[in-house]
Design a binder for these strands. Structure first.
Lengths: 346, 346
DNA sequence: TTGAAAGCGCTAACAC
DNA sequence: GTGTTAGCGCTTTCAA
């Protein structure tokens, strides 16, 4: 029951074949640049196709070839700038390479993440790109997918133990650099508001923070690390807690920008001046950081590049000919974006 | 050449049928809840399907039924919060109803917008949701799609003349309310930084602005309207121009939040106090507005609702049984979000 | 270099 | 209530 079929008969390769008195197979070959087709036939077919406004039916093509040319992408939330930007990179490369992109938002829920994978299985996507949801602490659903023979690549939120290819930012280095930036500015007692410990991204930033302290021979005070849950409210709460310490910190490295925003809000509410009294550094380079007062020092995660690299990796995996992938793990450099919130000296 | 086909033989309805010694068609019917199938058979088929881990091949199903269960969505940019949020609404409803969502970003370019439509045609989407790109001034590509019999619905950035169903915010009302809010606060000389005049959204906000002035018997001064191009830079530039007037404004209604952000930045650079010296109102309720200083008064566009309504409209269009659509044009109320930037009194 | 024929997995029309 | 048959539009052997 084709809706509106009467309006425009869909032209097929059979139509072209009939018109030219050749076989449909020949038309197909000509249209797909098969080498064993004469230049003359090819031109003729192409011209006729254009004239008849032929459009290849991807669905039929997919059914026959077993390739859908679809890539599924699961992101935690489209409302976070960061992911929107990564998707931009994914789409750009994917479209160039003839793939379409299906998006599914997990909303940080494990259940919805699983649903997304299920949906993608149904849609017969050729490969899947995932940034893991915050609530996900079990990973069997990803392994299931891999067992089905569908390539997966993680981006940003990866899980190392699974041995699934991934494109991430060097979070350890980022955490290290963030801490060092504060030390360089003369802050002495640096706190860290971390994210859920089960997530690699946040764990590594914490490790970077610890390593930087150690390198600078600063005693690691456990009281100065508060585990947050990656949100403005969490940043506010953690800040309150930190500032109530007998020896409060003089700088805070927040695990990402939303948390950092919470920190700034709370400090303002408490009448503390940033960066004079307290230094603040975030992570992710979310858009708002540039526009708030004081502007937020942070680290850029090369979002568009991340999307492209992840797609490129997936495409390699899809290309069965390349059995060996160049690199299973790609680390992007976090790029420091130094702004007011950390600049005590100047 | 099915990659990894050796790893997991894909089970089909034929497998189930064989196992139960019934016809494939019966299996299909049972799985699709066909009424004329006995409860007993249905249960049996369902159980077997589960046991064999059967997954319907959507592609085959699409080819046969002529329905892809795919909805294509074209947005100008995934990096604008507003669109991310609308997509959220679209996805939610679409997924509930068994549709998958393809996303394409036009990046405000007419060429890419056309490419997106072309891509969707190839992918045989059942319907298309579009928010028009800034650079688009000709609309034949949309009409072409409609002629192909593929339903389109616009959201937010619509074009009235085309007579294509749309879900938009009542921009006239919003422009009116924004202006009135400033008047209520005692501002007398209100400027407006508009957007490209060819776009309905911006044109209507301008008309709302003019109507509000008129209603309050305020002379409309053409000098106080500057056409911007919807960006921070544009807001800065326009503000500079406005403030250089012999009689500069004491309030600015910016056509959307990014422009408003530019206004605030420029005013700050000029040493003007907001809202004491000058009042500012934006539009769209972008995330940053809440967090900047001063926080930005703006109008919320009910993004998630917008996405849902647009999808609902499209779904109605797809459901051929309902020849008459309830409403071809849906207007959402802009919701005032009053913050510091406009609050002179208090 | 091209054609004929088969079939991807599913659903719908028509039987019974 | 279920089976039979055909075919969606394409690609891919195999044969010529």
């Amino acid at each position: 029951m084709q809706t509106f079929a009467y309006l425009s008969h869909k032209v097929t390769i059979a139509d072209i074949a009939r018109k030219l008195s050749i076989a449909p197979a020949t038309v197909s070959r000509a249209l797909n640049g098969h080498p064993a087709i004469s230049e003359k036939t090819r031109k003729l077919v192409e011209k006729t196709a254009r004239k008849l406004q032929y459009k290849r039916n991807n669905i039929a093509s997919s059914l026959r070839s077993g390739k859908s040319n679809l890539i599924g992408v699961i992101i935690p939330s489209a409302e976070i700038n960061f992911f929107g930007s990564v998707v931009h990179g994914i789409e750009k490369l994917a479209n160039e390479k003839g793939y379409n992109v299906l998006i599914y938002q997990s909303n940080e829920s494990n259940e919805q993440e699983r649903k997304g994978l299920e949906t993608f299985l149904h849609a017969r996507v050729d490969g899947i790109l995932v940034s893991i949801a915050k609530d996900t602490t079990e990973y069997d659903h990803f392994l299931d997918i891999r067992e089905q023979g569908i390539p997966i690549v993680f981006f940003d939120r990866a899980k190392e133990e699974l041995d699934i290819p991934a494109v991430v930012v060097d979070d350890f280095k980022g955490g290290y650099a963030a801490t060092e930036e504060l030390l360089k500015q003369g802050y002495k007692r640096i706190a860290h508001i971390s994210g859920p410990a089960h997530m690699d991204v946040f764990k590594k930033r914490l490790q970077g923070y610890q390593a930087a302290l150690k390198a600078h021979k600063i005693h690691f005070d456990l009281q100065l690390v508060v585990e947050g849950y990656v949100s403005i409210g969490s940043g506010q709460q953690a800040t309150e807690q930190l500032m109530r310490l007998p020896e409060p910190p003089d700088a805070i490295f927040a695990v990402e920008d939303f948390t950092a925003l919470g920190v700034l809000k709370q400090l303002k509410a408490m009448g503390k001046k940033v960066p004079q009294d307290i230094g603040v550094v975030g992570f992710a380079n979310e858009m708002f950081g540039e526009h708030i007062t004081p502007s937020l020092t942070t680290f850029d995660q090369q979002t568009v590049t991340m999307g492209k690299e992840a797609t490129d990796l997936l495409l390699q995996l899809l290309d069965s000919s390349s059995k060996t992938i160049a690199q299973q793990k790609i680390m992007l450099e976090p790029i420091p974006v130094i702004r007011e919130s950390s600049q005590r000296k100047k």
